[in-house]
Design a binder for these strands. Structure first.
Lengths: 201, 201
DNA sequence: TCTCACATGTAACTAGTTACATGATTGC
DNA sequence: GCAATCATGTAACTAGTTACATGTGAGA
């Protein structure tokens, strides 16, 4: 049917999240926006039906929690078969996934446009990446407070998240470096342009 | 209807490709696998219908080429309205796109598994990234031969591709660094394990 | 009063992948 | 003989996004 034994990649993503700690659908949805959404994202409209499928397959189970004032919620936890299947899937060799970066497409066609106006594109990307770095760093520090810095036990549920935050941080820093390189290209061209024309004023 | 004035991001990706030089659907399809597929990918089943839509909108035009032996082909080139629309789209501020890295999900759940067996996951990713780097470097060198190193004119159709290859290379190198960090985490744990147990033999 | 956070779901649509369909030429 | 490259398309399906739908409590 899908990725591995009838479970999709999204299914395994959700399993990985509830394996760390029991979560409601709403919690899973939040997890896949901040902080983890920088690495993998999903909307609640996809999450609720997927949780139902995982439950039908016996990979998660839920417990209804009645709350005073707030709406009731369903707290999902992973089952033993769910944990086994997840552990099995993790060790399978992965298929290469292709990124879909809109900025890369824009860059491909940037030679058609005015460099001075294109600059803001990369400045905005830098600002967005810096904002993400703030969030990722905060999440990472929260984990470092619970364990030692660079010393999270490999068997701790925090280990995977810590490693992924590390990955996300490196990616954003990388993006910033590249955007700065792009801006330097634009500046180089602007300088060459100024030099070839007699200074006015 | 879609992204900008009825044209989807895929449509703009194809427009960006044919803006560089006239291409057949097959050529576009190849472009979105190697070398550019490391940055944005699309299958021919998506490309042929999209080219037809772009043509219906007057953004590209094709010319049929009869070939001896080989099947006939349609060479698409961008039209003036196509070029204008693309240039306009490029300068629009972009929306953040979310990556979907399977390895990141596996990493989130890696604490459930045997570290010694998980190592191969990261070794394979390193090998794949090194392979990609070879391809990207070859493509980059082909451009550097036509222009100077780090001296591609901003108005050359090659500039955008060069910048994107640069981006792809940086991303793959980044991935390798992170995978090595992961392997170091596993080794650290293995060493601690050995140290805590009396040596046998 | 209005927006935001909490909380769960469905419906309609768009985007992307896999599989089907056809056919010649080149190299192993 | 078999696989790969060239060449273009369609059909069926899966995955993901946007919009619809409902309701409470807290704070500005």
């Amino acid at each position: 049917m899908a990725n591995f034994k009838g479970v999709t990649t999204l299914g395994f993503a959700i399993l990985s999240a509830v394996a760390r700690e029991p979560l409601s659908g709403y919690d899973v949805s939040r997890f896949f926006s901040r902080p983890f959404g920088f690495i993998w994202s999903a909307k609640h409209s996809q999450i609720y039906p997927e949780l139902a499928k995982l439950q039908a397959a016996g990979l998660v189970a839920h417990q209804e929690v009645t709350q005073g004032g707030r709406p009731d919620k369903k707290i999902y936890r992973i089952t033993d078969p769910g944990r086994s299947l997840l552990a099995e899937w993790v060790l399978r060799p992965g298929s290469p996934s292709s990124p879909r970066a809109e900025l890369a497409i824009k860059t491909l066609a940037v030679w058609l446009t005015d460099p001075a106006r294109a600059e803001s594109l990369y400045r905005q990307e830098i600002a967005a990446a810096e904002h993400d770095i703030g969030n990722l760093t905060a999440a990472r520090e929260a984990i470092e407070e619970r364990h030692g810095r660079n010393d999270i036990p490999l068997t701790s549920p925090d280990f995977g998240l810590y490693a992924d935050l590390q990955y996300g941080l490196a990616l954003r820093r990388q993006t910033i470096d590249w955007c700065r390189w792009m801006l330097a290209q634009f500046d180089r061209a602007a300088l060459a342009n100024t030099a070839s024309q007699p200074a006015a004023g």
